[in-house]
Amino acid sequence: MTADADAATPALEIHDLTVSYHRKPVLWGIDVAVAPGQLVGIIGPNGAGKSTLIKSCMGLLPVSGGWVKVFGKSLRDDPRRVGYVPQRESVDWDFPVSVLDVVLMGRYGRLGLGRRPGKADREAARACLDKVQLLPFANRQISNLSGGQQQRVFLARALAQEADLYFMDEPFAGVDAATEAAIIAVLRELRSAGKTILVVHHDLPTARQYFDRLLLLNMNVVAFGPTEEVFTAELLQKTYGGRLTLLSEVAQALGAGANAGGGERA
């Protein structure tokens, strides 16, 4: 069910985006329009600029050219419509805060300067924790969590933002099966609530099952479209270039595509 036809304004529109790092272009000429209600996987080899793409969409990195619009507006005009799940390694997990404190940060965008989160925010944060099965951990210090639990805390925080467009940076990286299942459940729930989600993903076999659409990225957009049309040997080869190990992984993924359960991961 693509909402392309009836969606007047795309949830995310990227036009001719170019990003450089130390004068070396990392992304160039990115043109993408994502309609509301889609679950999009961003895949590509290491160094393809996947994280750079979502960070520059959120204004976290300076762009050298082009523009990004969220629901037809610049992000600066309405930052609240966007939620963010950064890579787990991006923060210090020894920070002296509890699980609930971190989830409450998701509410900060809707509170004015100098206002503290109130009872309603606490309730909302607890509900989000419950969705990722972490409610019993609400008062724990965040360093006493497993990697998968930390990832779920970030997910709960993003849910607490109650945004319409979500960017997630490798949420599935190095997580346990319970967390993987929890993330997928949340992604599907968000999608059925009409939210738009872009997920940076590194694992090809699962990419095929998880996402409605795939954005194949390697410094520029190799392909963007419905998963069944884009997940082809030819396009993946084009995306991953001559990386043989990855290519065999691709072949495996394509072969395993027949059984819906997906291939085993190495």
Partner: peptide, 22 residues
């Protein structure tokens, strides 16, 4: 006291803070 949450979120996760408009 007044900027407790802003000081907290900018110290913990500057990227998130920016996306929240802080």
């Amino acid at each position: 006291l007044v900027f407790y949450k802003e000081l907290l979120v900018t110290a913990f996760d500057a990227g998130l803070a920016r996306t929240l408009g802080v």
